[in-house]
């Protein structure tokens, strides 16, 4: 199997953990995996991306434009920013809740992500989730990275089994948060399955 998955968001949203779990789960299923992270200055509130490349045909550490099968966007503006990576028939799983940039308080542009969501709807096959809504039962948006991973898996487009992902969640999150994370994942999975129907 060859599959390219791009995860994007803003610094602090937990994209790196989602990327690690995805990569490890794919390896658990016997695939060859490469990935690359944004590290350095960009982490301080900036845009962040993780490129995950599954299969033997990947040479570049970064996914070439137009090559990603799945775009996992933790923020609608970032989804649009990284849309160039997505294949024409690829799927985008997008959080509709915007993260306003810090500069917004100094120079207000009125950015709230709604225009971006409308644009994405016109352009691509998308699955939308709102972190505000799906995270409400868990009392914190901290688990959104795992929930959106569940949504992508549930929608059947990630190409990695539910079991492998759950096993890696168990392995990679601190024991005291493992149960909540697994529940978050399953809640996301259900949302993804519904989106499929």
């Amino acid at each position: 199997m060859n599959k390219d998955i791009l995860i994007c968001g803003t610094g602090g949203q937990g994209t790196v953990l989602a990327s690690k779990i995805t990569a490890a789960a794919a390896m658990r299923e016997g695939s060859r995996v490469h990935s690359a992270e944004t590290i350095g200055m960009a982490q301080r509130g900036g845009s962040v991306t993780s490129h995950i490349r599954i299969g033997d045909e990947a040479f570049s550490p970064l996914i070439p434009c137009g090559n990603a099968d799945v775009l996992l966007a933790f923020e609608p503006g970032e989804a649009v920013r990284n849309l160039k990576y997505l294949k024409k028939n690829g799927v985008a799983v997008v959080n509709t809740a915007a993260v306003r940039p810090v500069t917004e308080s100094l120079n207000e542009t009125g950015y709230d992500g709604s225009e971006q969501v409308e644009y994405l709807k016109r352009k691509h096959d998308c699955v939308f989730v709102s972190s505000d809504e799906v995270c409400a039962p868990f009392g914190s948006t901290k688990f959104f990275n795992i929930i959106i991973l569940g949504v992508a898996a549930g929608s059947g487009r990630l190409g990695i089994s539910k079991e492998a992902l759950l096993a890696e969640i168990e392995k990679q999150v601190p024991p005291k948060f493992a149960e909540t994370n697994k529940k978050s994942f399953l809640a996301g999975f259900e949302t993804g399955e519904k989106a499929l129907k």
Partner: peptide, 15 residues
């Protein structure tokens, strides 16, 4: 890849 030349303006996120 799809044409995204018509995408809406995006917020800058400087460090």
């Amino acid at each position: 890849q799809s044409d995204i030349s018509d995408s809406p303006a995006l917020p800058a996120r400087p460090p």
